[in-house]
Design a protein around this nucleic acid. Structure first.
Lengths: 223, 223
DNA sequence: TTGGTCAATGACCATGCGGTCAATATACAA
DNA sequence: TTGTATATTGACCGCATGGTCATTGACCAA
């Protein structure tokens, strides 16, 4: 079952046609969100008839599910790559790499990034996905948690750390940063990074530093 | 001009009627978001006719603007209160108070909180508000930045700190935490806090600790 | 009781939606 | 060339939307 959301009819479609449909769907959902996305517009962009679309996918939500699958799988590939390629690195390097990989993802797949960001907290998504949203939130926290656990095993991090909470908080930093990057990415004229010219490396460093030492970064430890 | 978005007709309405309209609007926008909110439903909930509503407010967006005003002002009241009542406290106490005030706000005005959360990043909002969204994001960062600046003046915090970035990151922590609290608040059965029974004080402490010392909280400073 | 004022009303409008299905185009076997 | 099976189509459906406006009815002065 390669396409659990599309029908078999869609499965057996010639590749370029499938691709056109996916592209049109990704663009439409990214641009308008699930609620405002129009199947009429989508169908026109894809160059197929509305009748066909509803043969290939049994409903708007069904198509959206397929697109979400696509986005989530692409993200998971990225995460897997980070996990493997940094398996032997110390904690701070690993989360740097993770954050950098996030920036890369937003650059490479801005539309998927947008769909993912909106999914993470929109009430706009069809109800069938609300469990998945919780799962995704939990998984990204778990992913960071595994880095922390590795760090503890290697005695880089203190074993007293509350792993899940810390992971949750680091995840919060990364998510907001990437979200803001996405916004600036598309509308760089006014915002947080304007003065900064969006220096990614710089931000990665600042953020990882903050995650490591907090505001006491430069302090002499008198808190 | 007390009600810059409602017409004079709305201004001169008897108070209970105004209140009913506001309440219905807040509920409808909170529950469905701007895009899916229905004026028909809203009007029925408020117990007035559709014609009247469009005399009081010249459009759906106009009404939404008024509700946003309401939410933003309520939030600003809370922030002002925190700023004043903690004016002489040290930095860590002030941000603790700020975060706690956030939890309180979510408890007291869950619908306004939801509207605000969605506004902060939704593309669902009418275009007239997109500038305001940027402004709001910037203001919450600035608010925290002012606490940091005070902390530096008192020599609690090192003057080398990048004030804006640090404020941005702390804001990220708070925002995500409150957002999650809101979700759990309404659907506590499954999520990050389930095992925890949503111990607010505990989370405030963890978060402020993290913001202060990062993951090195318990470490001996060997990074 | 009348006449005039004006807030309130809800039937109505054009538009666009997700989704359907009888009709048609296409492909291939005989 | 014909017959049949399948893939594709787009006109059409019921519905809900944001917004309008001729009509209504409550109120008060004369």
């Amino acid at each position: 079952m390669k396409h659990p959301h599309g029908t078999e009819a869609f499965d057996t479609l010639p590749h370029p046609k499938k691709e056109r449909i996916y592209q049109a769907a990704v663009s439409e959902f990214a641009e308008r969100g699930f609620g405002k996305a129009s199947m009429n517009r989508l169908v026109e962009a894809a160059g197929i008839s509305k009748g066909s679309l509803f043969v290939y996918f049994k409903s708007k939500s069904g198509l959206f599910d397929a697109i979400i699958d696509l986005a989530v799988n692409r993200i998971k590939e990225h995460l897997r790559e980070v996990r493997q390629s940094t398996a032997d690195d110390p904690f701070s390097l690993r989360i740097s790499a993770l954050l950098r990989s996030g920036f890369r993802f937003v650059d490479q797949y801005p539309k998927l990034a947008k769909i993912y960001f909106e999914l993470l907290q929109s009430n706009d998504a069809p109800k069938s996905l609300q469990k998945m949203v919780q799962t995704l939130n939990w998984q990204s926290t778990r992913f960071i948690a595994s880095f922390i656990e590795d760090g503890i095993k290697r005695e880089e991090l203190d074993s007293e750390i509350d792993v899940v909470r810390t992971a949750f908080l680091i995840n919060a930093l990364f998510e907001k940063l990437l979200r803001s990057y996405y916004s600036e990415h598309l509308a760089p004229e006014a915002g947080l990074y304007a003065a900064d010219a969006i220096n990614i490396d710089n931000w990665v460093q600042s953020t990882v530093n903050f995650a490591t030492f907090g505001v006491s970064r430069f302090s002499k430890g008198e808190f």
